[in-house]
Amino acid sequence: MVETIGDFGLMFHLTRVNSGLHQRELMGAGVAVQTVSRFENKRSDLSLSSVISLLQEVPVTMHEFLITSTGTFPDSFDEFLQYVGVLGVTRDADEQIAGFALRCRILYAMTKNVEWRMRAAMLASSGDIKVQEQERKLVLSYLMRVDDWTSYEFILLRRTLCTGVLLWQDIPQLWPRLHRFNREEHRMNYTRQRMQLVALLSVADLFMEARDFEWLDKVLTVTRQLPVRSGDICAEFHLRALEAEQLLLCPGADHRSGAKLLHELYHSAKFIGAPQIVARLEAISVATGTDLRKMPQKV
């Protein structure tokens, strides 16, 4: 957590200098030059409204100011969210953090504080069935309590599914909250939408593994409609591969179009040069007995 005003002031200073602007040129924001100077020199706090008006003048997006301008984070919560959020995107994330996560989880769990125990559950599995059951109850009761989920809840869900604290059997009772989204909402709530997308894809993976096609279909239907999907090619490959697998495995589905879709995805993944996706599609073709070298024949 930022204990002093210094970090914000420094971040603002860097942002301003990077844009090649002088303090005088920020007069349009209606904040006195002396105030800006005191803020940058770590001598006083600045109100929310002044910070926002100054950022209009610089010009810099909120995302840049909060996350990327200096590589430091304005508070530990943003930092924690960002950190755990990234875990779902990198492939060998679990290995990368295993050691760190275990150390943290032991410390966190000892605090007996709900907040920190949930963080512990997100980081790694405790390996103890009794502790796991307690944590499962804790996380479930928290998630059931919150009506409108923000990034935190989607990340909590996805991470606790990864660490095995929550199970796919827990999804149906969380579904009313998990699947809700607002079609009109876009852009700046990007972080939350993306976390929802990734959470839904992990849930779909679990239902696929469990061969629960009814729920899988439910999850995929919602995932397909999320506006944030467009342009996120990794997520789109993930989703389409699940759809192909669903068509190939689900009894009564159109296996031929499943094979066709898998074949087309394979061709595209090779064209872009995405080895991890090629590998995933090959695994699906082996599991379903589909030949990727031959385009399926027309009837």
């Binding site: 957590m1 930022v2 600045l46 929310l48 926002i52 943003d78 923000t150 909402e185 700046m188």
Partner: peptide, 29 residues
């Protein structure tokens, strides 16, 4: 102040970004 707002947000599990992203906000960036 910015710092204090950060702490209040942390206590309810909302990031600064999410608060500033609320659609109805007239003063967004």
């Amino acid at each position: 102040g910015f710092v204090r707002l950060g702490r209040l947000l942390e206590n309810i599990h909302v990031s600064m970004e999410e608060l500033l992203a609320v659609r109805s906000l007239r003063s967004s960036n």
